[in-house]
């Protein structure tokens, strides 16, 4: 089957240079990474700060290109400069900081900027803007200035801007880092809906373990390597491994793990409250 994203031995090196441009050192941000994502999958990538997650994400929409190895996005090689624009239309990216992604002076114009740039007819642009803004719960702010929104609201506008381009794949790089629980749940729900209803491939990079529970597959990165991969249940069964890698597990998983250690008859890899309640009161 064709893959949405296929990385073979993907490597990325950053060169550190002194003031005269001489190379002082080389750091390897991605070290021979192999990864394959099927179209329509919901993938999560975990890893601590500096593990290489964001560097990987930036390759997927050709903001960075491999030093070695190959990365194909929807069958297109990110190293081929002629494909850069097509790749960016296929794979939309939402960054951590919404302030760097909002450009227009009115919310609805910001969301319409992407599709307009792609040459979409005006009527359809407005339909897309409406559905994207409603999708992120920002429709009532459509005529506001983005400058007057809070950080969380700006992030939702940024996500709407990518959604309006209707890409095949959306990469969300810690999209909820600044949102409140309601906003976080809303963004996650939007991501899952786009995945389920429109078959958009989602790559979610996050620090919130709770957000990973509903993904199809999880990759854990450290020092540019993929050190663990599996379904959420497989990953979260390895509580002690994750903690050793500066990560954690959802609060409920940790509680279940501790109760099991204290002698209660509970399976490993409990992900949700429902599962824990079932294990406690069979």
């Amino acid at each position: 089957m064709k893959s949405m994203i296929n990385a073979k031995q993907l490597t990325h090196e950053f060169f550190r240079r002194d003031e005269e441009g001489n190379v002082e050192g080389i750091s390897v941000a991605l070290d021979h990474v192999d990864l394959d994502v099927a179209p329509g999958a919901f993938i999560a990538i975990l890893g601590h700060n500096g593990s290489g997650k964001s560097t990987l994400a930036k390759h997927i929409n050709a903001l960075l290109t491999p030093s070695e190895g190959t990365l194909l996005v929807d069958g297109m090689d990110v190293s081929d400069p002629e494909r850069t624009l097509s790749i960016r239309e296929s794979a939309g990216m939402v960054f951590q900081n919404p302030d760097n992604q909002i450009i227009a002076t009115v919310v609805e114009e910001d969301v319409g900027f992407g599709p307009e740039n792609m040459g979409i007819p005006t009527d359809e642009i407005w339909q897309r803007v409406e559905s994207a803004l409603k999708g992120v719960g920002m429709w009532k702010y459509r005529e506001h200035s983005p400058n007057r929104l809070s950080g969380g609201q700006k992030q939702r506008v940024a996500i709407a801007g990518v959604m309006a381009m209707e890409p095949k794949c959306i990469i969300l790089d810690e999209p909820t880092a600044m949102l409140d629980p309601g906003g976080r749940a809303e963004v996650l729900q939007v991501a899952h809906e786009l995945n389920r209803k429109k078959g958009i491939t989602i790559i979610l990079i996050t620090h919130y373990m709770e957000e990973v529970v509903d993904a199809d597959y999880v990759y854990v990165m450290e020092k540019g390597h993929i050190i663990m991969d599996g379904t959420p249940r497989e990953i979260f069964s390895r509580v002690d491994d994750l903690i050793a890698h500066r990560l954690t597990v959802p609060q409920i998983t940790l509680l279940a793990h501790r109760l099991k250690a204290a002698g209660l008859d509970i399976p490993e890899g409990i992900l949700t409250r429902e599962e824990l309640i079932k294990a406690l009161c069979p």
Binding site: H48, N49, Q96, E174, M178, H207, R246, L247
Partner: peptide, 13 residues
């Protein structure tokens, strides 16, 4: 004001 935003779980703790 949100001193742990953007840090990994160990960094937050």
């Amino acid at each position: 004001d949100e001193p742990t935003a953007g840090l990994d779980p160990k960094g937050q703790r």
